[in-house]
Design a protein around this nucleic acid. Structure first.
Lengths: 379, 379
DNA sequence: GGATGACGGAGATACGTTTCTCCATGAGCA
DNA sequence: TGCTCATGGAGAAACGTATCTCCGTCATCC
């Protein structure tokens, strides 16, 4: 049997196998046109009279034709898939601390991707080639990449657009989005001071990610500017037990603070428990704010003021930036010719946060209010 | 230029383009072996001496070779991708009501998939060909499919394994997993009765999904068996406002219940608010239980007893069943020869729930306890 | 009346793998 | 010497699509 005969006879010889999905060839044969015509008709390309188009579409529909995503991806170089990379601790993707934030952010990202015809795949930053190589991505969102992150560098080297949630320390990304952590912390400290706080303490982390670093620096700078001695405890944020211990230590100090801001989600609960142990009334003896996306703090006694990082908005923005980069890439490749995209060119975007004021940070008026929205954009 | 010359010269002519990823051909050329040998060496197949293998691996590493997922998928028919289909309401995937459940379930599913070398893609049940056709799936998890779900039927017709979370009403699936809703509801009703409830009410939904239906039937059956007149309000579960209204209506009835079980996550908060309006003390005048995965109910006043569906376990199980089906499929195809898999063959699995007992359902002992731990094994 | 161009569509190639088939070589053995 | 086998590896055919190139056919225009 010659190669040609084999090729043309393939369908008939294998059609006996059940569940054989119809291919573009079958549609072409059934419609009495060429493969080219079918492809053009279904994709709205080429120059075809409308009657041909509708006829081909009819036949395709009748045969239940579904184009092979794999073949299309191979041919076009586009998969319509974007990755969402998370750091893992142990078996689970993303940490306990980040759970509420991540869940909201991932949901918004998924939604934003779908709105633009992309699908989102959650991938762990750790397991390298196992899964990563097996999925064709058009680009990746990276959450909180570490300094000189090897994985991000690797992705970038492959020419994949990478957008990071969290200002990247020292790794090349196409774009990034972050909250204005500096402004957020200053806002909280001012808010506490206005409520009567004299000695504001901080519960912070020992890790070197941007969020922890920027927030802590903002706190220290504020202390310098108002002449307060810094009062803080740092602990490994991924360990929930360490958080409870650190909260206790902070309130056990001889120079006990009269207000505390906790950088991580569980801090509110931990601080509340510690305050009870030391018979401190909130907010009378101790003002409390923590950074959290959880609605638990609306139901605690008293309800705790929280800083929301607005993960929905971050997720949406990050995905849209990524898709912009993916879709702008083809045209950019043709026009621009410089070898290395200038590092200063990387577009970063700062998103506002929202302070949800509840009883725990209000000594004067016990009413629950919400802070006025900031003008978006600057600082 | 002949075709052969063109083919062999391709790399050299196009190498001038930047960011050209190395292909298997380049590795073969650099290592001085054939493409076959490279493929075999990297995939651990064929019969090759170890020195050849390591040499090829070295060269591949040096060139930064990453196999094309698209090409591999096209060739092997396996993408390593599984879908997670959710029903959508409006723009967002999954409803407000299901949020905590879904977040946990999705996380566990993602984790379970990654553990077995698969990645998980969240896809909306609605937008049909837009995205669905563009991603090559090895199988799909469907959450709570409706009766005669056309999408599930379509997937199944294409020969894709489908596993559903929630016993499927009347659509063909490969397997399914569900909680034992009947037993769960009976357990709760007994628990409330033991705590002194005489007239137990139910807050239920108007939709026809399995969860709502089975739970309501269990309630009605229990009422019949103990001779209590049913007291329930049904509302469209996807509308949070309707839930608050229904909770109010239930407590406003002349034959007001002295205990209520709410089938949906926000019911606890809504019932608590309604109870306050009618000056009912919980648990003294009204016992409360609701089905929820949210930890909000540990912090309410009083803390509310909840039924957890253990979404983590469900997500893990569902994914593992799906992957079993995917990987068992190839061998099954060769041996079995029957045209239609018998419907009775579909393997279903019932998972236990967990009642987290808190103050809202305990009239006698005010201590907060947790139900006795089950025999260990899974989360 | 022949060059021109729009129209409608077919052929063939390439995307980058995996894998089936088959070949060369040399050792072992009668 | 001639035969079989195991070893190591090469060739080439798919997988199913998109798209580049090109070809015939009319109608039109100078």
């Amino acid at each position: 049997m010659t190669a040609a005969a084999n090729h043309h006879g393939r369908r008939t010889t294998t059609r006996t196998r059940r569940l054989e999905r119809a291919g573009i060839r079958d549609v072409a044969a059934a419609a009495g046109v060429s493969i080219t015509t079918v492809s053009d008709a279904l994709n709205g390309k080429g120059r075809l009279p409308d009657e041909t188009r509708t006829k081909v579409r009819e036949v395709a529909e009748r045969l239940g034709y579904r184009p092979s995503a794999a073949a299309r991806t191979l041919r076009t170089g586009r998969s319509g898939l974007i990755g969402l990379t998370v750091t893992t601790y142990g078996q689970e993707p993303f940490t306990f601390t980040e759970f509420a934030y991540f869940a909201e952010m991932a949901r918004a990202a998924t939604s934003a991707a779908l709105n633009r015809g992309y699908a989102l795949v959650v991938l762990p930053a750790s397991s390298r080639h196992d899964v990563w190589s097996n999925v064709a991505l058009d680009g990746t969102v990276v959450i909180d990449p570490s300094d000189h992150d090897p994985m991000v560098a690797d992705l970038y080297r492959q020419g994949l657009p990478v957008v990071s949630d969290g200002k990247p320390g020292n790794c090349p990304v196409t774009a990034w989005v972050d909250n204005d952590h500096h402004a957020a912390v200053l806002g909280i400290l001012d808010h506490l001071a206005q409520a009567g706080a004299r000695r504001i303490g901080l519960l912070t982390g020992t890790s070197t990610d941007t969020y922890t670093r920027l927030s802590t620096e903002a706190y220290l700078g504020w202390c310098r500017s108002v002449g307060q001695e810094p009062l803080y405890e740092a602990y490994p944020a991924h360990d929930p037990c360490a958080g409870a211990v650190a909260a206790d230590r902070l309130l056990a100090r001889p120079d006990r603070p009269d207000a505390v801001y906790g950088l991580f989600d569980p801090n509110g609960t931990d601080l509340l428990a510690a305050a009870r142990r030391y018979h401190l009334r909130v907010p009378d003896d101790l003002l409390l704010v923590c950074c959290s996306e959880s609605d638990v703090y609306a139901a605690t006694e008293p309800p705790i003021t929280t800083l929301s990082l607005k993960p929905r908005r971050i997720g949406t923005t990050v995905v849209n930036l990524l898709i912009d980069a993916i879709e702008g890439q083809s045209s950019a490749n043709q026009s621009s010719d410089d070898e290395s995209p200038a590092e200063e060119n990387v577009s970063g975007q700062l998103m506002p946060t929202e302070l949800i004021v509840r009883r725990s940070s209000q000594r004067r008026s016990p009413r629950t209010t919400v802070s006025a929205p900031r003008p978006p954009g600057e600082t």
